[in-house]
Amino acid sequence: MSRYRGPRLRITRRLGELPGLTRKSSRRSYPPGQHGQNRRKRSEYAIRLEEKQKLRFNYGVSERQLIRYMRQARRATGSTGERLLQLLEMRLDNTVFRLGMAGTIPAARQLVNHGHVMVNGRVVDIASYQCREGDVITVRNKDNSRRLVEANMEYPGLANLPSHLEFDKQTMTGKVNGIVEREWVALNINELLVVEFYSRKV
């Protein structure tokens, strides 16, 4: 299944607040659809599926990509759930979003795909690029690129800069100082339920 391109408020009404997907908030607090207001009790499977869907829609990854990240997280040492979140958080599009260069992760992905972002002095147009400790992320030295990022920086998606990143607004230069810690993940999610969801599939 490909990346979601439909109405975003519909997703946030169903799954709750997703800071990476959209900054808009719905006036209605119940899920969309005919039976949104009188939902029956959810099954164990439905609860786990919902947590998994939060990850998918917030970070804008396909089901196939998420399974690949899950396999990587399994092979790594430590908590599988935490490692999965770290892999998603250290993607280039998410890092650009957390630095404040874009208002949402889809907007950050567009910046990256259109070649406005450089990593260690080279243009990187792959949104899924895994940022590593020591990577320097800058805006391409073009008027168009700088104007775009300057406009985005006026309305950043999230106010707080995570502890593993540093950003100089004057030079529009960000640096990755380490791997993100669990407490800095902005998404409200229970990653253990996602691990349980994939336990039989992966």
Score class of each variant (00 low, 15 high):
88 L>N: 06
185 V>M: 03
128 S>P: 00
63 E>G: 12
17 E>F: 06
46 A>D: 15
85 L>C: 01
55 L>M: 08
179 I>D: 03
127 A>R: 11
90 M>H: 10
121 G>Q: 07
179 I>M: 11
3 R>G: 09
116 H>T: 11
51 E>C: 02
183 E>I: 09
75 R>S: 15
107 A>Y: 04
187 L>M: 01
199 S>K: 15
178 G>Y: 07
91 R>F: 06
138 T>K: 13
22 T>L: 03
36 G>W: 11
134 G>H: 04
94 N>K: 08
145 S>E: 02
92 L>F: 05
80 T>P: 00
120 N>C: 10
194 V>Q: 04
167 F>Q: 13
38 N>L: 12
42 R>T: 12
148 L>I: 10
49 L>T: 04
45 Y>N: 05
201 K>A: 08
29 S>N: 11
149 V>I: 15
9 L>H: 07
44 E>T: 09
55 L>K: 05
36 G>I: 10
41 K>A: 14
7 P>M: 01
34 Q>T: 10
141 N>W: 00
3 R>V: 13
2 S>T: 13
136 V>E: 14
178 G>D: 10
69 Y>K: 05
61 V>H: 07
188 N>R: 14
166 E>D: 14
110 Q>S: 13
151 A>Q: 11
98 R>F: 09
172 M>E: 05
19 P>E: 05
142 K>V: 05
151 A>W: 00
22 T>D: 02
100 G>W: 05
65 Q>L: 11
135 D>I: 02
37 Q>F: 06
74 R>S: 11
66 L>W: 06
18 L>C: 03
4 Y>D: 08
86 Q>W: 00
92 L>Y: 07
35 H>K: 13
113 N>I: 03
70 M>T: 13
125 D>V: 00
62 S>I: 10
109 R>V: 10
176 V>S: 08
191 E>D: 05
1 M>I: 12
198 Y>S: 09
198 Y>R: 05
2 S>R: 15
2 S>Q: 13
202 V>S: 12
47 I>H: 08
120 N>W: 11
55 L>N: 05
198 Y>T: 10
24 K>C: 01
189 I>F: 00
170 Q>I: 13
35 H>A: 08
43 S>N: 11
102 A>H: 08
62 S>P: 03
141 N>G: 00
120 N>E: 12
41 K>H: 10
98 R>V: 06
32 P>S: 12
10 R>N: 11
17 E>P: 04
86 Q>M: 04
